[in-house]
Computed example of a mutant assay.
Amino acid sequence: MNASTARKVAMITGANKGIGRAIAGQLAEQGMTVLLGARDPRRGEEAAAALRAAGGDAHALRLDVTDPATAQEAARWIEERFGRLDVLVNNAGITGSGQVAPQDAHDQVPSAAGLDMVRAVFETNVFGVITVTNAVLPLLRRSPAARIVNVSSHAGSLTLAGAPDGPFAALPPSAAYTPSKTALNALTVQYANELRKDGILVNAAAPGYVDTDSNNHTGHLTPAQGAAVVVRLATLGPDGPTAGFFSAEGPLPW
């Protein structure tokens, strides 16, 4: 262990670009040591180097959330270097439709969606969260005030998605991305229920429609704006909520 163990330690998956990188940057600005999980080690190190150049304490970790071996290796590295983990942000996710705007994702219409694509989305967006969370949970239990934030989407709200005149009424129905975020919300509640007695707060965050590669940069919010709600939930005090679903404006309906 080194002197930086006095800082809180946060790991963010999918952190080499977009919302994940913005989350890492904002947590670093608050004085945390940030661990940037990335499938591509080179891109992860480039992002970490940029944060270090800006004065942050940042380190890259090779982490593919669909590969349990990399999650276990990341957990071992964190244990050896820091002995604990204070914040986990499960940010890594895929749309399944490539770099297209939601209104163009017609390949996800339930009656026509390919099962391989649906499985791939759930593998990252849901099973990957379980893989990473369980790998580092022993380290989170060593923190006096651990926080887990799962990056979800407004689309994961059954209430919003099911409203005939709601915000998603004009978009093609989805058998992959949207249900994966609904499942992630349900998973968030179950982890929160299990870990409540340990003082670990677990919440889901909806960043909003952010300008990222995943939507071919059609979003109207910046990554920094989208990251703000995630960072707020990652830094909750002891009386903060758990088992909740939040946007920048406040609680969202399930």
Results as ranks from 00 to 15, higher is better:
A15Q: 09
P138S: 13
G31M: 03
S97V: 06
D198C: 03
G199L: 12
L195Q: 03
P164G: 06
S180R: 06
D104G: 01
A183H: 04
E45F: 05
T188W: 15
A24Q: 06
E80Q: 15
G226V: 02
P251L: 10
A228F: 04
A135I: 08
V121F: 10
V149I: 07
T188Q: 14
Y209I: 01
L233C: 08
R43P: 07
A204Q: 09
D67G: 02
N150T: 11
T242P: 09
A176P: 05
H217Y: 15
G44T: 04
I23L: 07
A120C: 03
R142W: 10
D40C: 11
L35T: 10
A183E: 01
V136T: 07
A92Q: 02
M117C: 09
V65S: 05
G25Q: 14
A101T: 02
I19Q: 05
V65Y: 00
A248R: 07
G25H: 03
E29K: 15
R7I: 02
L36G: 14
G31D: 10
N90V: 02
L233T: 04
T66W: 00
A54W: 03
D86G: 10
T159N: 05
A24F: 00
S4A: 13
N16E: 04
R7F: 04
R81N: 09
F245K: 11
G31K: 04
G156F: 05
A155L: 13
S214Y: 01
A224I: 01
A176Y: 03
G93R: 00
A49H: 10
G226T: 03
H154Y: 13
F246Q: 08
F246E: 09
A6M: 08
L35Y: 09
A113C: 15
S180Y: 00
D40F: 02
A58R: 02
G128M: 02
V129I: 12
K197R: 14
R76E: 13
S4W: 07
E73Y: 07
E46K: 13
T242Q: 07
A28S: 15
M32C: 15
Q190C: 07
A205Y: 10
